[in-house]
Design a protein around this nucleic acid. Sequence first.
RNA 1: GGCCCCGUAGCUCAGCUGGAUAGAGCAGCUGACUUCUAAUCAGCAGGCCACAGGUUCGAAUCCUGUCGGGGUCACCA
Length: 577
Amino acid sequence: MNLFAEIKTVVLEKLEALVAAGTLPEGLSFANVTVEPPRDALHGDLATNAAMVLAKPAKMKPRDIAEALAGLLAEDARVLSADVAGPGFLNLRIDPAIYQGLVGDILAKGTDFGRSNIGGGRTVNVEFVSTNPTGPLHVGHTRGAVFGDALASLLDFAGYKVTREYVINDGGSQIDALARSIYLRYLEAHGQAVSFPEGVYPGDYLIPIGQALKDKVGDRYVDQPEAVWLEDIRNYGTDAMMDIIRDDLALIGVKFDHFFSEKSLYGTGKIEACLQALDDKGLIYQGKLEPPKGKLPDDWEAREQTLFKSTDFGDDADRPVRKSDGAWTYFAPDIAYHHDKILRGFDELINVFGADHGGYVKRLKAVVFALSDGKVPLDIKLCQLVRLFKDGEPFKMSKRAGTFVLMRDVVEQVGADVTRFVMLTRKNDAPLDFDFAKALEQSKDNPVFYVQYAHARVCSVLTKADGPSDSSLQKADTSLLTAPAEMALLKKLAEWPRLAELAATHHEPHRIAFYLFELASEFHALQHLGKVDGSLRFILADQPALSQARLAMIRSVAVVISAGLGILGVTPKDEMR
RNA sequence: GGCCCCGUAGCUCAGCUGGAUAGAGCAGCUGACUUCUAAUCAGCAGGCCACAGGUUCGAAUCCUGUCGGGGUCACCA
């Protein structure tokens, strides 16, 4: 049950009635009418702006519309009162029975409470992580991984059919560098002294890979030219790196439905076909680019290239798809890859990138728009960087200095649940500070703990009450829940379905984390009131009916916390001792 | 220089397709526990929403410009 949606439906019905009665003129758009929680709870339970957004197109005074609407809304059994306030707001008071009835609804649906069908079964492809298969994942990748995974879960919760996808960039020159690096480790395993020139990966993680290669092929590649071993080691290395990356992802509970190999596009004619499709639309041409503005690269010179006319779709420059030597740029297979996603029939596409790929957004949107004739929306979410803190001091990371922090180091130290939650307590386009000490701190300062603690406390109380089942709690008489703090908690629970929908439509999983913090706060406040005022305790020996109602209520809090944490990929804790 | 993101309390950040007196945590101050976890709670104090214009009945939110911070710019992927 989404109370806000229900009441909005009522508001729209009543507006139609006003049109039918001639009070409002015909042909009005109700698109901007909203039903929201008012900023100040004193104003009421819900508020609608209907009168104000319709005043101008209806050429009426907002208060006149509000008065007329108020009269009709008050007829609805759920609406106790409808008062006009301020410039024309309509404040509604809702029958407490609606909120009290929410508990039974939550207990019946369990963690499915709040699921919606705003996705309408539409298919959405969420592409994330997609790091080059040249080494293990580091902290920066972790944020994208957690964000993408949570966003995918969130969309599933909102009624989309979601595919989690990872594109393996296994076709480019960085794989050559990987192969050469592994070759050096392979020689090393054969007892040769090696040095690592510029442009190869010197990381220790390739030592066992080189050793394993030796075990596999013996000395067949020793002192042989690249032509002999490069292709084989490229494949071997890519597979080995993907194994590492998959293991890393498993550590934080990220699983993909589909891995797509960029290399698989080569030699199939798909890239050519896709560029031909663009050519047929008049969007491919031979030409020279203007030099970039600002300071020129030293070796810049104008060259004839094959270009995609992305400026037709709002990009700042046309983009090369073929280099002057005839080879593809990175963009070309990526165009074909996105074409493939469109051909697979996805209704919507989402890409999660690091903020350093911001310059790539416009051309990708341009090409998806061009290939799908504007029919397949592409949203690109950029995750800003993660700043690590140790003991309150910034922890500088450097690949060269070997102080780069790997994802598995973070997960080993603080655990997957904490890592995930912390990564989601900031919106994606804001930088994130990750403090190891704070992540493990057991205090209100640490939202992970605070939310988990609320869940654990509910479990603790229920255990104290001999662990009643959800089905028995469903029979509780929740009309006994009348204390103001109880109503506040119930109203917070009522916001969950709407919040989940908003988070999904905005592609912003962090809203879930913030909501859970607020819900936990309402719960902690109520629990504490029981200490100040004994009549508010959850378990009252002499009032079994009231106790049952309260247990049902706090159980529903635990259920919603579980649902929210589930979307974030965090396991709720039953106890915190 | 062009483009993208950010600028909200001393600090870290929320702020809903524009809505009423801008919210939370931390830090500070004052209090609260014989009890279901005080690992918590209540209260006080703290604001030119970077700045200047504009659109609107109404702007932290939308538009333009300025300033400040970050990212990015290529036949790399």
